[in-house]
Amino acid sequence: MDYALAVATALGALSIYLLLPRGRGSLVKTGALVGVLTLGVAILYLVRWVGHHEAVGQGAGLGIFFYLFAIIAVISATAVICHPRPLYSALYFVLLTLAMAGLFILLLAQFMAIVLIIIYAGAILVTYIFVIMLASPGGNVAVADYDRVTPDPLLAVLVSFVLLGTVLQLMFIGQPRTFMAARPVRAVAVGVIRGHQSLSDKPALRIGGMELLGVNLYSQYALPLELAGILLTISLVGAVMIARKNVPVAGVLGTGQMPVE
């Protein structure tokens, strides 16, 4: 077991537990503090880990932009699930999407980045915001009860973080225990701040282009693509049917009443 990682996971769990809305006596500030602590520990851990790999001669640093986007993504995701006002959650989700798009560009998936922004930030999130507006509870309450109080936050956080901890341990198990063993400081700094990737590598650039994606989709995944189109149509029809007014309460669709014996 990697204790540093375990400590980071536990701190993360504590932070989320504190941040989740809990009505009166909110502990948001404490939670935020613990969150910052978590991020610090995580970054320290990463630096150590990257240093080890750099020492072995394996480029592990991703450059400052990865870490920046990753931190934005994690913080905004936390805000989405912890903010008591749904509208703010939605807006934080837009931020998350933007950060993800940045990460996609780092991964040479420029097309996917654009698609993500157009579809998620542009279409899906706008729909969510519409629905949040439509389905706002009546009265003058700024925040509804069910948004203010979270039931059983401990159970949810505990179970989820046990899962996360297990997965992370699995991933990083067998890594060096010795802290900062033989670290080439300059290499670490270069790895963490500048990274080893370059957007100008020509074969890599071709990967990010739409051309290869199109060829892949329309040759290898032609049938699934058609099925996905059908699925979209079906869900469209389904959504229309579900959301229309005067849906019969029980019985046969169409007549809207139970057959009389």
């Binding site: 989320i16 989740l20 994690v74 995701a77 936390t78 989405v80 699930i81 749904p86 969510y128 629905v131 949040i132 389905a135 509804a144 069910y146 948004d147 109080v149 979270t150 039931p151 059983d152 936050p153 949810a156 956080v157 179970v159 989820s160 899962l163």
Partner: peptide, 13 residues
């Protein structure tokens, strides 16, 4: 994080 939101929050949206 998504999982926690899914099980902890009460708001359907």
């Amino acid at each position: 994080l998504g999982l926690i939101g899914f099980v902890a929050r009460r708001n359907m949206i």
